[in-house]
Design a protein around this nucleic acid. Structure first.
Length: 841
RNA sequence: GCCGGGAUGGUGGAAUUGGUCAGACACGGCCGACUUAAAAUCGGCUGCCCCCAACACAGGGCGUGAGGGUUCGAGUCCCUCUCCCGGCACCA
């Protein structure tokens, strides 16, 4: 064959294998009951987070799918029936905002982008079962998103209520709590404003405890993700204590985590949004000032109000409540540092033991009474005025100035006070969460319509299942105007009430796109099902996702919502698992020149460019070689080139080995000696190293390094091996093994080299196994240390005991010299590794 | 402030979990071979310092953010500190 034709040409080679995989439908798997279903193999569900299709895929996608594909291949080769599907999170704001600018329908731009993504995934050679492809914007998909919404509605988990919500003025929509970062819209950065609106919520708070408890069901999730979710849910144990306003005959329950500080409560604060505020203010002399304060608080943006540097503000209400532990009358204030959304919207203020209350008390000249002290403090220290709030959770603290509880250790005071309150019905143990219900209404166009009809007579009426999907109507104007663009589709909005038949109107909001992605991993399992979102049989077989791979930016939002959906669907009876993702790998971000890639900085990397120049194999292998998957890394063109050079070296080696050796002489391996045996050992070493690193948290970078070492070893010895049968066999074995080990990263080249050397399909081959016999050596290099310092290396027989090793070491001139006139204190031996002689003198 | 994760050559990162002078593999750099030449390719060297007129060899010392500790032995375990990254934060 002509030399030119034997050059490494990734493009032609990659196209060849991609064609074979498409024609032979290599990566398709069948459900139970379908022809071709493999009940003989264990299943593995390998899934990467689905992409939001905008423009073309970027390097983050390349990394995500390269890692996922390597894992999918590795599982397949280890005997698993792997389901590895793909889809698109196609609804969303960017496409809609583009539509407002360009006038092009979001469906058109989205579908163009989907085509580009699909095309790139094929060009990358990702092993996807394309028969399961879904896209969340299609009626076939969102019909079932609506169906699930209705099930949640029936179960009381979807409800509508008026609430103070966070409004983004730029995107002209409300946002979920999770989408507000530092008081700003996560997406566009605008300061969000408080608004009182009636909105749809999902009752995720009902699941708070299960979301926490079921972390135990997960096998391997990164600690930081679990911690972030824990913090987000923010469970705190404490008590609800009732303070009564005698004048108005009103009870005010408050939540506290520190019942032991009750005797230190010297005033009481309610949030500006508190529903009883008007009644409290009505009779008091200050009522104008109160109303003014409340109005100002309502105008202040959420972020501004939360700013820590801000001085405490508030207004006295001129009323008092009774402290249930000592009957004291303490004044009531309204202040915006108390949040209506947390607890009961009212607090008992204990300035001596809470920084915020302390600050407020100082500003308003309120008494500060100390009720907790460290056990070590003297009487004098305990009586001295506080410079700052004494906030401590030590078990060694004691209660002081606390009536009959004075002198008790704080934990006990806590218990006793609670019991005592409970007996008289003035308080009880309770739990509070930071987590709020998930606000899912969006006043935007490009999303899944909410399948509810508003009827003046019947109220909220579910669209009957048979009428799903409620189609997303065509509109002329996408511009958000404070209400959903869907409201402009008058014909669509006007509808008969499914319940009474009278004139009614459709809900014109669309759902948060996180709803779409909270169940997509279930639709893959049964993507063509026209009767249900998925069959119980398919879900029972494939769920849960054994390995999920995606960006850590979804640690809270997507991952918590999907966990909630899974539990809710299980409760409704659709699903038998409690957790969707058993193992999670969060990949690190790829930067360029040390900075996050962004169009405005102009440091983006287009994978397509590199795939064209170096091939998909080089690009994929490079992103896996940069470092451990969960770490980030800086993209270097030289790095891709380095991997490309390695692949080309493998190719060149394979061509040479194929030309200069004969197939089928593997029996010769048994007799290998000298360099041939060394190469054989190196090959088994590489197999063991690769397998070990794959199994230990997918250390993909070192798997690749092992294959590089093997190729380097083959290059160093190959010219001396061609002439002997054993040498030739060792070279063939090393080359084919490299192909086999690199296949999960470079599937095209791996397939090609395997075919050249061994014939057939590498993906049908089981993952290679290292032969322990070959790896166990008869002799090893003994390291001899004296007082922990290396002094000599000797060849020693494997399995020698301590005494034998010591005798051997003493025979060495270097060691003998070191040991002269020294007293041997101790000899430590590590079998087949080292000997440490401890001496004195 | 609280929680989580880090800090290893010029660079990305290795180190089989307390055991072979730490630095695999790769990038970058230097040198050589091939070539009229360059590119490509192949091969070699590449932590710092000392000893030496210089080269080579051999040798010695120091090195995993800083300091201390445990141990025969520490990048790995413990304590203190510094810095960096991520998350949460007026949540009672």
């Amino acid at each position: 064959m002509d030399d030119d034709e034997r050059r490494y040409e990734p493009r032609a080679l990659e196209q060849k294998w991609q064609r074979i995989w498409a024609e032979e439908r290599t990566w398709e798997v069948a459900n139970p009951g379908q022809p071709g279903h493999r009940s003989d193999k264990p299943k593995a569900y390998v899934l990467e987070m689905l992409p939001y299709p905008s423009g073309k895929p970027h390097v983050g996608h390349l990394k995500n799918y390269s890692i996922g594909d390597a894992i999918a291949h590795y599982r397949r080769r280890n005997g698993f029936e792997v389901i590895h599907p793909m889809g698109y999170d196609a609804f969303g704001l960017p496409a809609e905002n583009a539509a407002i600018r360009t006038g092009e329908h979001p469906r058109v731009s989205t579908e163009r982008s989907i085509a580009q993504f699909r095309e790139q995934f094929r060009a990358w050679g990702i092993s996807i079962d394309w028969t399961r492809e879904i896209s969340s914007h299609t009626p076939e998909y969102y019909r079932w998103t609506q169906w699930i919404f209705l099930k949640l509605f029936e179960a009381g988990l979807a409800y509508r209520r008026a609430a103070a919500v966070q409004w983004c003025p730029t995107d002209a929509t409300v946002l979920a709590n999770e989408q507000v970062v530092d008081g700003r819209c996560e997406r566009c950065g605008s300061l969000v404003e408080p608004r009182n609106l009636e909105q749809w919520f999902f009752k995720i708070t009902d699941y708070a405890d299960r979301l926490l408890a079921d972390f135990d069901l997960l096998e391997d999730w990164p600690d930081n993700v679990v911690t972030m979710q824990r913090n987000w849910i923010g469970r705190s144990e404490g008590a609800t204590v009732v303070f009564r306003c005698e004048q108005l005959e009103l009870d005010f329950p408050v939540f506290t985590t520190r019942p032991d500080t009750l005797f230190g409560a010297t005033f009481f604060v309610v949030a500006p949004e508190h529903p009883d505020l008007e009644r409290l203010a009505a009779g008091c002399a200050n009522s104008d000032a109160v109303r003014e304060y409340v109005a100002a608080a309502m105008r202040t943006s959420t972020g501004e109000r939360a700013a820590e540097s801000r001085d405490k503000t508030g207004v006295a209400l001129g009323q008092t409540v009774t402290n249930p532990v000592n009957g004291e009358q303490i004044p009531i204030y309204v202040a915006d540092y108390v949040l209506m959304e947390y607890g009961t919207g009212a607090i008992m203020a204990v300035p001596a033991h809470d920084e915020r209350d302390f600050e407020f008390a100082q500003r308003f000249g309120l008494p500060i009474r100390r009720v907790v002290a460290a056990a070590s403090e003297s009487e004098g220290q305990r009586e001295a005025p506080l410079e700052a709030a004494f906030v401590s959770h030590s078990e060694h603290d004691v209660a002081i100035n606390s009536g009959q509880f004075s002198g008790l250790p704080s934990p006990e005071a806590n218990r006793r006070i609670l019991d005592w309150l409970g007996e008289s019905g003035r308080g009880e143990r309770s739990v509070n969460y930071r987590l709020r219900d998930w606000l899912i209404s969006r006043q935007r166009y490009w999303g899944c319509p909410i399948p509810i009809v508003h009827c003046e007579r019947c109220g909220l009426v579910a669209v009957p299942e048979a009428e799903l999907p409620v189609p997303l109507p065509e509109v002329d104007d996408y511009k958000p105007k404070g209400k959903s663009p869907l409201a402009g589709a008058e014909q669509w909005v006007a509808v008969e009430c499914p319940s009474c038949g009278g004139a009614a109107r459709r809900d014109t909001d669309t759902m948060d796109t996180f709803v779409d992605s909270s169940w997509y991993f279930l639709r893959y399992l049964d993507a063509d099902n026209g009767e249900a979102p998925f069959s119980a049989e398919a879900a029972d077989h494939w769920m849960a996702v054994d390995q999920y791979i995606g960006g850590v930016e979804h640690a809270i939002l997507h991952l918590m919502y999907a966990r909630f959906f899974t539990k809710a669907l299980a409760d409704i009876g659709c699903l038998r698992v409690q957790e969707p993702f058993t193992n999670l790998l969060t990949q690190g971000m790829i930067t360029r020149d040390g900075a996050k890639m962004s169009k405005s900085v102009g440091n983006t990397v287009s994978p397509a460019t590199y795939v064209e120049r170096y091939g998909a194999d080089a690009a994929r292998t490079y992103v896996c070689f940069m470092g451990p998957p969960e770490r980030g890394g800086d993209w270097l063109d030289e790095g891709v080139e380095g991997v490309y050079r390695f692949l080309r070296r493998l190719w060149t080696l394979a061509v040479e080995v194929e030309q200069r050796t004969e197939r089928g002489d593997s029996a010769q391996l048994a007799g290998a000696a000298g360099p041939a045996r060394d190469l054989l050992i190196k090959t088994h070493w590489a197999i063991e190293k690769a397998t070990h690193d794959f199994d230990r948290g997918f250390q993909l970078n070192t798997v690749i390094a092992a294959t590089m070492e093997l190729v380097n070893a083959a290059y160093r010895c190959k010219n001396g091996l061609y002439d002997s049968p054993a040498g030739a066999a060792a070279l063939r074995f090393a080359t084919a093994t490299t192909a086999s080990l690199i296949f999960p990263f470079s599937p095209h080249l791996g397939s090609e080299v395997w075919e050249m050397i061994e014939g057939g399909r590498v993906w049908d081959q089981p993952w290679p196994r290292a032969d322990p016999e070959i790896l166990s050596v008869e002799r090893f290099e003994l390291v001899v240390q004296i007082n922990g310092k290396l002094r000599d290396r000797l060849s020693a027989p494997s399995g020698s005991d301590r005494d034998a090793l010591f005798e051997l070491a003493r025979a060495s001139p270097k060691i003998a010299e070191q040991l002269a006139d020294k007293e041997i204190v101790k000899v430590i031996a590590v079998p087949d590794k080292l000997l440490n002689i401890v001496v004195r003198g």
